[in-house]
């Protein structure tokens, strides 16, 4: 491993880290602003111009708050919980291709930390670890409500992981690869996977809402009517980590949805523009387009949050197991039939 490669990889890691953090930071601001606009209010506008410094003020507030460790909790695990939540949220961005490789001195620079050939599985592996942050945090609090909240949250996440995985199976059947990079590259032709997999997209989107614990699936938190949730006992920046991890998850899942279903960095008329603007310029533009898609989905997340009321717990479980799971299996069957249509036609003709 050459040192040049190491530096390049480190730079990419730093970029993904910084991008996730900054986007998540300003998502908190965006959430408050969008909530305000949807409710005919103004939103935070005191810290800095248009309240742009609000996230920093919130961060400082979080750090300055009193740090509390419950006496009877197991301290190590209590601290480990938010760390895990944050770590898991940040490691998912590794497999996302942020832009087409940019040519510099005839050398391609890949905007992806690692092109694992099982990228989607990697995402799933990391997401499935995300449950631990919640469970450990809830259990280590040594509080019945936190424990119940943790159980509620993790059973929700496990239930929706299944439907999410099956909706991805259908997508993998059409693309024939598990690498996120290749899936995005395949959508270069102009038709994005959303066209082939509308039902799969819908299921994936709903599951993404559930996995990020966003409304209408925010039972784990239940800010408005229950004691809290798994983070009942948390204060200061440890609580901040849990809340912040949610926003990073939102950013990453928006990025994954845009890559898998909406063509990632591809955009219409890209090939035509290459002649005018040059290859590299178009690729930089593609980077911008990917972020535009991501922001669009983040807006969707917030828009839904401030529109739909929360599910009741039995409704949530019914939706996950009795609606989304059968639907995603149906989607797999339909996709299989579609892929094998020529062979089937031959059979019928014979």
């Amino acid at each position: 491993m050459s040192s040049e490669l190491l530096f390049y990889k480190l730079g990419m890691v730093l970029f993904v880290f910084a991008a996730s953090m900054v986007v998540a930071l300003y998502s908190t601001y965006g959430e408050r602003k969008i909530a305000a606009f949807l409710q005919d209010r103004i939103g935070p506008n005191r810290a800095g111009p248009f309240g742009l410094l609000q996230p920093l003020a919130d961060g400082i507030k979080m750090f300055m708050k009193e740090e509390m460790l419950p006496e009877a909790s197991s301290k190590w695990l209590f601290v480990l919980g938010p760390c895990l939540a944050m770590m898991v949220a940040l490691t998912t961005g590794v497999v996302i291709p942020w832009a087409k490789p940019i040519m510099l001195d005839g050398q391609p620079f890949h905007f992806q930390v690692s092109d694992i050939n099982i990228g989607i599985l990697y995402v799933f592996g990391v997401v499935s670890i995300g449950v631990y942050g919640i469970m450990i945090g809830g259990w280590a609090s040594n509080n019945k409500f936190a424990l119940l909240g943790a159980l509620r949250a993790s059973s929700q996440m496990i239930s929706y992981e299944l439907a999410m995985g099956l909706s991805i199976v259908a997508l993998v059947m059409t693309t024939g690869t598990l690498s996120v990079n290749e899936i995005v590259a395949q959508q270069d032709a102009g038709i994005c996977n959303f066209v082939y997999q509308p039902l799969g997209f819908l299921i994936f989107l709903i599951c993404a809402f559930a996995e990020t614990n966003r409304a209408p699936f925010d039972l784990p938190e239940c800010e408005s009517e229950l004691v809290g949730g798994y983070h009942t006992e948390y204060s200061s920046m440890k609580l901040g980590f849990y809340l912040f991890a949610e926003y990073i998850n939102m950013f990453i899942s928006s990025a994954i949805i845009s890559c898998l279903y909406f063509g990632g960095y591809n955009f219409p008329f890209a090939h035509e523009m290459e002649g005018i603007l040059g290859e590299n310029m178009v690729r930089v533009l593609g980077f911008g387009f990917l972020f535009a898609k991501i922001f669009g989905f983040i807006f969707l997340f917030m828009w839904v949050r401030w529109t739909l009321p929360r599910f009741r717990y039995d409704q949530l479980m019914n939706l996950g197991w009795k609606v989304l799971l059968p639907l995603s299996i149906l989607n797999i069957v339909l996709t299989g039939l579609f892929l094998m249509r020529n062979e089937l036609l031959d059979l019928i003709i014979k």
Binding site: I34, A36, F37, L38, Q39, D40, R41, I42, N45, W303, V304, W306, T307, L308
Partner: peptide, 21 residues
């Protein structure tokens, strides 16, 4: 029904805020 609700909230996005600073 969800789409309906989303349209309603989207309409509010472009309404004048009722806030008096």
């Amino acid at each position: 029904a969800i789409a309906n609700g989303m349209v309603i909230t989207l309409k509010h996005l472009f309404k004048k805020p009722a806030t008096i600073s």
